[in-house]
Design a protein around this nucleic acid. Structure first.
Lengths: 111, 111
DNA sequence: TTTTCTTATCGTATATTTGCGATAAAGGAT
DNA sequence: ATCCTTTATCGCAAATATACGATAAGAAAA
């Protein structure tokens, strides 16, 4: 492949793509679901619920954290995670904005 | 890796992840933007606008089509693409639904 | 028919993602 | 201090994704 082309797109496009990428695995969707239901959750609870090894769950959590979609705090020997609603809302509204803005322009039928 | 774990998640989770995956590359976000602005668009126009080779653009279009986010019709020697608003809207509302449903439950601060 | 134009697909190289076991690190319990 | 519990990280293997040039395939034009 040799060359990274992602940087040649606008920052906005890259940000939206990064947000979508964080959501692009069913395990991460499932993690967000559990976090939303329980409000907050320690890593071990997620491991119990998901069909994945502890190290794999930890890795998905890391990706969600890097993407800014969840917060994590150390609680003794445990790690407590919860959804970063602010970031989540920001990205979702940005998507909706893009979507709605474009949608109004052309409701007409196409190819 | 050896084993595919994706199938062990619910269909809903897999569908949402697949939708997000289709949006997880800036080139595909850019393509959707152009398609939305022009309403419909032939492949060559996209190649002119994007910093990618024709074969690469064609591949991204294929992925968007497989994901159901765009429609494509053959128009003589050209291919005309447009956004499948119905599918797009369905997925976006599904995301919003998930997001809103979960959000209402817990506005309280967490970790 | 031959040429030209447009797009899809194939083959290939490289980068990234996914997944797990093993291990480290850090706090609590004994 | 030693063990136990919990989580993060490392190292590795395999699968996917990304990107391009070359080529095929199809329609229109010469």
């Amino acid at each position: 492949m040799a060359i990274h082309k992602k940087e040649e797109f606008s920052q906005r496009e890259q940000d939206l793509a990064a947000f979508a990428k964080a959501l692009s695995h069913p395990a991460r969707i499932a993690i967000l679901k559990v976090l939303a239901q329980k409000n907050e959750c320690i890593c071990g609870e997620l491991v119990d619920v998901l069909p994945l090894a502890q190290s794999t769950v930890s890795q998905h959590l890391k990706e969600l954290k890097i993407a800014g979609l969840i917060n994590g705090t150390v609680d003794g020997p445990r790690s407590c995670y919860c959804i970063n609603w602010k970031a989540f809302e920001k990205f979702m509204s940005e998507f909706s904005f893009l979507f709605n803005k474009l949608k109004v322009q052309n409701e007409k039928a196409c190819c």
